[in-house]
């Protein structure tokens, strides 16, 4: 078979698709499912702009074949806000000017959410190393790190998220 029929879960919804064997999960998300939140910055796993979560671990969707997603559970940027309500990370990125052009932002948000779900109180160093695979060329990372710290503080229930 050169085409695979895949049934997977994306942001909680069951999704079926056909894909060519060499298509990546990123190709499938963008070109077949119209989910363009994940971006292709390099296609080689070096930039992190295509980051999604698969079965609880973040991955570069450019380094996953579409066919591999069968039976998995995928979370993407499109599922991060609950309707109109932004995730605290999204809100702190906005308020803290943690994005400029915004191309790396979806990947960084997905990666940062996975970090905070695993470690609600990461140190600056832990955040920096966790996000080392998410390149940002605009910000110099400063405001990104601060936004993650502030979102983490808010999610821990600490009132002073400054």
């Amino acid at each position: 078979m050169t085409h695979s029929h895949v049934t997977t879960t994306i942001n909680g919804d069951t999704v079926d698709y056909l894909c060519d064997a060499e298509e990546t999960l990123l190709d499938v998300l963008r070109d077949r499912l119209g989910m363009t939140g994940a971006k292709e910055g390099c296609g080689t796993g070096d930039c992190g702009a295509c980051t999604v979560e698969m079965d609880g671990r973040i991955v570069c969707s450019c380094l996953v074949l579409g066919a591999e997603a069968d039976g998995r559970s995928i979370r993407t940027i499109e599922g991060m806000a609950k309707g109109e309500e932004l995730h605290p990370l999204q809100r702190h990125f906005l308020e803290g000017a943690a994005l400029q052009c915004g191309i790396c932002t979806p990947g960084i948000l997905v990666a940062a959410r996975a970090l905070l779900e695993k470690n609600p109180n990461p140190s600056e160093t832990e955040i920096r190393y966790w996000l080392a695979g998410n390149l940002c060329r605009c910000t110099g990372y400063d405001k990104i790190i601060r936004a993650v710290q502030n979102a983490a503080a808010e999610m821990r229930g600490e009132s002073n998220a400054a």
């Binding site: 671990r57 973040i58 080392a132 695979g133």
Partner: peptide
Amino acid sequence: IGSTQVQGR
């Protein structure tokens, strides 16, 4: 080996 993303794979 690689990034956090690569580590998962």
